[in-house]
């Protein structure tokens, strides 16, 4: 329950801080940090424009996408407190339920019959294919280290052993941060503020969405950021008492958002064909973590 509230809280300001950081870094004043939320509320109040090519798939896709992200959010724990849904192997459910959302966002894009949206859909499908092994290897290594298979148990017992686990935690944090970048289509893989459809990934998929649907998609994006932020925080929070953990969580979210903003301000996005290599690196890093986990658990011969 706690994680649920905290993630929603983080989602309200995360994207705002990224935008604010970027505007200050480029010498502008920029909008307030709650502007994204205001945008979404405005969208919820609007009517809608649908493409004449599209079918019912286009209409239900954003809803299912949002629901999948929302249900995935329920799985994420906060320190000792479980998520609303918690069971052995819940991270498998987490990954696959996000996959369901991805499936629908892709076919929703394909439904418009636009060449640009097809392009975005193709890229999204390819990237998500590369991300999945990294996630499962990473969770496998954590399961190996802790002997548990649910998010909450893994995170709460992660640092009871040696202090090397913190090093592995940092590596795992990096992997999760990269996964978050890919999942949310941020720099350096995808530039959400680009103005050329040919170079977009996620933004081009939602070109035709408007009104309520667009609001849902954007909200899902904010939630995703906060979800991954919460997972990264969980890697370290372990046994910290709540009165410290909660402020730390918020501070860390602000810091993460600030980092993302800084990266986006001072880094150009990769060339499209480098993205795939970048993503494959993820799997290699997770394999590294796996061997680290072998060392920690004393099974390395």
């Amino acid at each position: 329950m706690l994680s649920f509230l905290l993630i929603i809280l983080a989602a309200t300001f995360f994207t705002g801080i990224i935008i604010r950081t970027k505007s200050i870094a480029s010498g502008r004043k920029g909008p307030g940090i709650f502007q994204p939320i205001k945008d979404v509320i405005r969208l919820f109040k609007k009517g809608a424009v649908y493409s004449e090519t599209s079918s019912f798939v286009f209409q239900i896709a954003p809803t299912i996408y949002f629901s999948s992200v929302f249900v995935a959010m329920l799985v994420v724990p906060f320190g000792q407190s479980k998520g609303l849904i918690s069971f052995n192997g819940d991270f498998i459910f987490f990954a696959y339920v996000l996959g369901l959302g991805k499936f629908f966002s892709i076919i929703g894009a394909m439904d418009t019959g636009s060449s640009f949206e097809g392009m975005g859909a193709s890229r999204e499908a390819l990237y998500s294919m590369f991300v999945e092994p990294a996630f499962f290897i990473l969770m496998g290594s954590l399961a190996l280290m802790t002997g548990h298979t649910s998010f909450q148990e893994i995170f709460s017992t992660l640092h009871l052993g040696s202090s090397i686990t913190y090093a592995l935690g940092v590596l795992a944090g990096v992997v999760f941060l990269m996964i978050a970048m890919i999942e949310n289509s941020r720099m350096p893989l995808d530039d959400p503020k680009t103005h050329l459809e040919l170079t977009m990934v996620h933004e081009v998929m939602i070109l035709d969405n408007s009104g309520f649907d667009l609001g849902l998609i954007l909200t899902a994006g904010y939630l995703k950021f906060a979800i991954y932020g919460a997972i990264i925080f969980n890697l370290f929070s372990g046994t910290i008492a709540y009165e410290y953990a909660i402020p730390m969580f918020i501070a860390m979210q602000i810091f993460l958002a600030f980092c993302v903003g800084m990266i986006e301000s001072f880094m150009a996005r990769f060339r499209m064909n480098h993205n795939a290599q970048f993503i494959v690196v993820l799997s290699s890093v997770s394999l590294l973590i796996f061997f680290g986990a072998l060392l920690v658990s004393g099974k390395f011969i």
Binding site: T53, I106, M110, A125, L126, M129, P133
Partner: peptide, 24 residues
């Protein structure tokens, strides 16, 4: 890794099949 890859590839395959055959 194989099982996860299979999942990801299947997703790509069927978004392609459904998207191209039935949509647009």
């Amino acid at each position: 890794m194989g099982l996860a890859m299979i999942g990801g590839l299947a997703l790509m395959c069927f978004t392609k099949a459904f998207g191209v055959v039935f949509l647009g």
